[in-house]
Design a protein around this nucleic acid. Structure first.
Lengths: 224, 224
DNA sequence: GCTAAAACTGAAGAGATCCTGACGAAAAGA
DNA sequence: TCTTTTCGTCAGGATCTCTTCAGTTTTAGC
């Protein structure tokens, strides 16, 4: 699978490249719309990550071109939070999905595979783990096809664990993800214990098996 | 995995220590180049975080020394944004990566594990020794494709042995690697005996052959 | 073989980590 | 505004891990 990343922030770009290559995607990058346009004309990509807030050009114009060219690439818009307009949200402009900065690389990865899956296999943006189904767009959880009433934090927590399935995730990482604050340092993880407890209880009551394992001294693991 | 943090800003240092210890790294710190030099001479680290803009000494000189000493440590340069020269960016000076302040601790963490992977494991995320598989990202050990649950110390111990496969590692080296304060020589290796015993037992019970040999008077060897 | 040093073992206390229920604060919804 | 829900903190207790210790076995050298 081949991905084009259109992004000018060097550090973010590097992170994305490293992560996505680690996920076995073939990645190329462009730091300007002009460079991107050239690449798109010459090569084909399964997915294009488009930062629409680059200096020196309007990303929406590029988006227009992309859609009229009826290429088969899936397109995910990336943008600062306050640049996400209702039009983008509604995906009226023809993108397949959008993600606002700052985002987590694991979430980006999930979106990419969802978009690619949909394009190639006309699926939807859901993640399925046995009886648990996560709908990324609706932000809902189904267990045995029945919705489970989770709070926002609980949903975030489950999604994060699910995106990192079969990996041990540290409490540092969880705390950062839940709080949305990527700068803060956490001296106490009590709130994680509480959310974890409630999440586990709700999933259990809904009839799910206990996929969330606690790994003493290391963190948690969503094991499927 | 053991890390040396060379940094004089106390607050930042504390954040880094707390975070990285939370990620199960064994961490030590030095607030000056002189202190750092001493530690580096006496002990070995898997990764060194080097702030090159400390007062009272030039970090680049220390970097030079580090590279000529051909130690196996990975080196990540940390510095204020405007001190990042093109040379550093190109990593011509021999560092493995660089990070400009301010940075996110999770980003630092990602860089560290990438550097360690590159240096020690030639970039791979899983190590395979016949029926034993070490997944560095999942932080999980598989024997015959089934997970074996190890404690932190047991996992670290196995990783350290695997890292030095087919070499004899002394108990001093193991002790230094497992427990943070490398102040003095250890007079008592009882805790190693216990961890080793438990590790061996768990691997054996999981159906693995006994690759860990005890070399009388020398140490241990992971023989594959 | 004998001896002393080194290595192993099981048990157990100390210590760290995690879970739980309850409660007030904060946020969201009516 | 008032009500309801969600969130984070806290303290007590449960659980798991680490280290130490004492007793036993193995090893190398004589």
């Amino acid at each position: 699978m081949k991905i084009l990343i259109i992004e000018d922030e060097q550090e973010l770009l590097n992170s994305m490249l490293t992560y996505l290559r680690g996920e076995n995607y073939v990645c190329e990058s462009a730091a300007s719309y002009e460079a991107a346009r050239q690449k798109i004309e010459s090569f084909s990509y399964d997915c294009i990550l488009l930062d629409i807030t680059l200096p020196g050009g309007n990303g929406l114009v590029l988006l227009e071109e992309l859609k009229t060219d009826n290429k088969t690439s899936g397109i995910i818009i990336i943008s600062a939070k306050d640049s996400i307009t209702d039009k983008i949200k509604g995906l009226d402009l023809g993108a397949d999905d959008y993600l606002s900065k700052p985002f987590h690389l694991s979430e980006l990865n999930a979106r990419i595979s969802a978009v690619i899956r949909r394009r190639h296999f006309s699926g939807s943006t859901v993640l399925t783990f046995h009886e648990i189904v996560v709908d990324l767009i609706a932000k809902t959880i189904l267990v045995h096809k029945k919705p489970v009433d989770l709070t926002r934090k609980e949903y975030d927590l489950l999604l994060y664990l699910a995106l990192n399935k079969n990996r041990v995730v540290s409490k540092n990482a969880i705390a950062e993800h839940l709080s949305g604050d990527s700068v803060a340092l956490f001296d106490n993880f009590d709130f994680i214990y509480t959310h974890m407890k409630n999440l586990k209880r709700k999933l259990h009551q809904a009839g799910s098996r206990d996929y969330i394992k606690s790994i003493y001294g290391m963190g948690y693991k969503f094991e499927v």
